[in-house]
């Protein structure tokens, strides 16, 4: 890296370095060998194996009644993307709210508790590079769990026709939501020495950011409504479930991810200013 960017000013500003890669690799290995991660993945699979068949049965009943009663119910209900996958994604979201914090809680708090934080602070990496390495590792771990949940909708392919691209865009949407949680929860971990506290804080923040969108249904003024619609994760996600990618959505998700990444970087840097 330093050969490619001989100017140290540039190297300093850059967010990714050899050090970032070293941190990323170490954390990935940490996830793969920790019972915590396996437990999270297994738990997710267990919940999904229980919930998904139920959803499938409900969808089946709906589909049948729609067939018999002609075009009664909303035609959307017949669509597998609305009738099944949207519901599936709302469950995935619910699971994410609780499992992303479990994956991120130790990433910084443990370093502070074990005093290994000094090692990072005295290594030739910037705070931004440290946060990036940890964030990418956490995103990969979250990604693996999400792949587990993706198996369920894919399995319906054996008896139902659906559009691959729509499903994938929907999954990109929920992954972006997960990335927002990850960034936020990593920030929570940077705030405290206690993993438990980081977990609780992260869940609260996740629930808050998800439910803040509910303001849409509560307020009257059209301006406030527009604002709530814009900051609602759900609003942006539902567009993607239909299979449409909107730049506003992408920008909104990425700016949240960046914002909390930046806040975490500030907290890491502030450790030097005790």
């Amino acid at each position: 890296m330093s050969k490619i960017f001989p100017n140290k000013g540039i190297v300093n500003r850059i967010v990714v370095s050899k050090g970032t890669y070293a941190i990323f690799k170490k954390e990935i290995k940490g996830f793969l060998t920790s019972p915590n991660f396996l437990l999270v993945a297994a738990l997710t699979a267990t919940i999904m194996s229980w919930v998904f068949p139920n959803m499938l049965r409900m969808f089946d009943i709906q589909a049948k009644s729609a067939q018999f009663g002609g075009a009664q119910g909303p035609s959307q209900a017949l669509n597998i993307h609305y009738g099944l996958f949207l519901r599936h994604l709302s469950y995935v979201n619910l699971i994410l709210i609780f499992i992303v914090p479990a994956l991120t809680m130790k990433l910084f708090s443990e370093e502070k508790k074990l005093k290994t934080f000094d090692l990072l602070l005295t290594s030739p990496v910037t705070s931004a590079q440290i946060v990036t390495g940890k964030l990418l590792a956490a995103l990969s771990a979250v990604g693996v769990v999400m792949l587990v949940t993706l198996l369920y909708p894919i399995s319906t392919r054996t008896f139902a026709e659906f559009s691959w691209s729509t499903l994938l865009v929907a999954y990109l949407g929920i992954f972006l939501v997960a990335a927002v949680y990850t960034s936020m929860d990593l920030f929570c971990s940077s705030l405290t020495e206690s993993g438990i506290l980081a977990y609780v804080l992260a869940v609260i923040l996740n629930v808050f950011i998800w439910f803040i969108g509910m303001g849409v249904d509560v307020v009257d003024s059209s301006l406030a409504r527009a604002i709530f619609e814009h900051i609602s994760l759900n609003q942006h996600l539902s567009g993607m479930v239909e299979g449409t990618l909107r730049t506003t959505g992408l920008i909104y998700f990425s700016s949240l991810i960046f914002l909390f990444g930046f806040l975490a970087e500030r907290v890491v840097e502030s450790a030097r200013w005790r």
Partner: peptide, 26 residues
């Protein structure tokens, strides 16, 4: 730098840990 408390990760193997630090130090 060796701080007052040795900055070691208890869930890592000695070799892997040193390898990691070496990479981190560039």
């Amino acid at each position: 730098y060796l701080p007052e408390t040795p900055p070691v990760y208890s869930d890592m193997y000695v070799f892997d840990f040193l390898n990691y630090v070496a990479q981190l130090k560039g």
